[in-house]
Design a protein around this nucleic acid. Sequence first.
DNA 1: AATTTGATTTAGAATAATTCTAAACTATAT
DNA 2: ATATAGTTTAGAATTATTCTAAATCAAATT
Lengths: 145, 145
Amino acid sequence: MKTLKQMDRGALSDALDHAGQRTTPQREMVFSILLDERNHPTADEVYTRTKSRMPTISMATVYNCLEALVTCGLVKQVNIEREPTRYCPNLSPHAHFHCRETGRVYDVPVPEGMMKDLVKVLPGNYSADSVELVFRGHLEKGKTK
Amino acid sequence: MKTLKQMDRGALSDALDHAGQRTTPQREMVFSILLDERNHPTADEVYTRTKSRMPTISMATVYNCLEALVTCGLVKQVNIEREPTRYCPNLSPHAHFHCRETGRVYDVPVPEGMMKDLVKVLPGNYSADSVELVFRGHLEKGKTK
DNA sequence: AATTTGATTTAGAATAATTCTAAACTATAT
DNA sequence: ATATAGTTTAGAATTATTCTAAATCAAATT
Ligand SMILES: [Mn+2]
Ligand SMILES: [Mn+2]
Ligand SMILES: [Zn+2]
Ligand SMILES: [Zn+2]
């Protein structure tokens, strides 16, 4: 995909607007990069990919754009162990699987309502606004994805 | 608790031995510190507490000891967002709750078998050896623990 | 007991992801 | 046109952690 689909462009403007932030070419490009290949890239990977299409962009700007996208709710940060933060534009409730062999991170769809049900294990005085479920292991050979 | 209980001392020696590592005063002290106050301290906090009872210990040694304890399976690392790694000597399956207000991390007991059941959401070609469940939110006033 | 061996501890340097700073740039509002 | 405020940018700073190399220690062997 060379550019942002009209739908995504609209969602981006709306979300940024709602958070009092401007829509800029850099933010559009970074968002487009994230949507284009959803393999939980690190900031550095986003930088490399973005730079190939917008050679003047800086690392600082990539971090700034990613932060803007996270702030306005279009992207989630995924932290696994002490590795660099990864970025995920998948907004539906899902878990993550981290393969020890390849280091790759995969989205794992979960049954409807499961993430919300998990908070039921919390004692009454705990109130959670986010639930994070991460598996670690390996992918059997055969399917690589 | 001034020193390691006999039970814990034995578990420590056995576990270190099994991993081909020696039992040292520093490792015993660090382990004792972790067991004594189970509030998921960071390496830095462990360093401070340990230093008060063993003034010559160094930060490098604290990291080394913590790594030894993790390697031999007596302690788990807990990573939350980009914060410094925390250390948890609770070996029973449990979840974690991270309070946004205080920054503190709490153990959340889960029903028997729940952590193991969670892996059932994984497609057949995924095989997980660890499951991590983290909630984020806040503790209602009243009980602070 | 003295010596060898290898693991451990230690101080300090190095690393690396991220954040910060301040100047240049851009877009919008007046 | 000018002012204002947000954004981008390069590079410096930060910081948790790892690495390095020398000193220490403890077990094993002579
Ligand atoms: Mn991995
Ligand atoms: Mn917090
Ligand atoms: Zn994801
Ligand atoms: Zn814990």
